[in-house]
């Protein structure tokens, strides 16, 4: 007490210093972070290490301790992290090109190894990015183009994941998932030729649709003709002789007068008195 009274300024400073030291000795470890405690550069403890299947709120996170000035804490993200790849051109076995954009999700599962090998999470990402590209190129390069369109089906992505995981383990990381975000034809010739193919396919389709339509129309007409002819036959076939007479009468009328007011070319008929129509004209008693 005496010293405080004598040198309050100094003791105040010391007090603050002690307070911060004490507060600093009990670091709070949030759920989103794991930590490596480093003693003069030598890692001694790991806080809140990721354990698979452990629910949130487990015993890892929370308040912890450290020896002031001796222990240094390196924070490392515990969450699922992202490696986004640059666009890669992939050549399939049948020499077709595809531009692929993929991403991988990973998590630091061994903070100590990560700290020793890479120091920071950013450097892990940087190390994994080119490897993701090359793994993808290698794996997709062994396939024909048609397989590249849906690489999930053949387990290609699982192979890429395993390949990348092997490397990631060296950095204390685990690859959770690798997915292809985009798979496009490269600009220029491949894209243009695909467009040409689509265009010609469509024109062909258009032409075939027209032809089909014409065919259908013709069939409909023919069927109608057949139907009409059947109707005529059923009706006219009852008495062929009468039909001949009846039809002749109709035909004369159509030919000389016209049908439905339709004007025919003017006709001059020269009749002989021997004509059946004029039979009575000459007088019955001749």
């Amino acid at each position: 007490m005496e010293i405080i009274r004598r040198r309050p300024m100094l003791s105040g400073l010391v007090g603050f210093f002690l307070l911060f030291t004490i507060l600093g000795s009990f670091p709070i470890d949030p759920e989103t972070k794991q930590a490596v405690v480093v003693q003069f550069g030598k890692p001694t403890r790991i806080l809140n290490r990721y354990k698979p299947g452990e629910p949130i709120g487990g015993p890892g996170a929370g308040i912890s301790w450290r020896i002031p000035f001796v222990d240094n804490i390196v924070w490392i993200d515990k969450r699922v992290l992202d490696v986004d790849m640059d666009r890669q051109q992939v050549l399939s076995t049948d020499q077709l090109r595809l531009e692929v954009d993929a991403f991988a999700r990973y998590r630091i599962v061994d903070p100590l190894r990560m700290y020793i090998r890479a120091r920071s999470v950013e450097r892990v990402s940087e190390a994994l990015r080119p490897i993701l590209g090359s793994e993808l190129r290698n794996e997709l390069g062994q396939r024909p183009f048609s397989d590249l369109l849906s690489p999930e089906r053949q387990g290609v992505m699982e192979n890429v994941r395993l390949g990348l995981d092997r490397v990631a383990r060296q950095y204390g990381a685990e690859i959770i998932d690798v997915r292809i975000k985009k798979a496009d034809l490269p600009d220029g010739t491949p894209l243009q030729s695909a467009y040409d193919r689509m265009r010609t396919a469509r024109l062909q389709e258009a032409r075939s649709i027209r032809a089909q339509g014409a065919k259908q129309a013709q069939i409909i007409r023919a069927e109608a003709d057949a139907q009409a002819s059947k109707t005529y036959a059923a009706s006219f076939g009852k008495d062929q002789d009468f039909y001949e007479f009846y039809r002749a009468m109709q035909s004369y009328q159509t030919t000389f007068i016209g049908d439905n007011g339709e004007k025919t070319s003017p006709t001059t008929i020269i009749l002989s008195p021997q004509n059946d129509y004029l039979k009575e004209f000459t007088g019955r008693g001749r």
């Binding site: 467009y195 689509m198 265009r199 010609t200 469509r202 024109l203 389709e205 258009a206 032409r207 649709i209 027209r210 089909q212 339509g213 014409a214 259908q216 129309a217 013709q218 069939i219 409909i220 007409r221 109608a224």
Partner: peptide, 22 residues
């Protein structure tokens, strides 16, 4: 390639009109 796709639509219409006439 949109024009080519429109061509298909036009062809469908045309075929339909053939059949309607028939």
């Amino acid at each position: 390639v949109n024009d080519a796709f429109k061509e298909v639509t036009a062809a469908q219409q045309e075929a339909q009109s053939y059949m309607n006439q028939a």
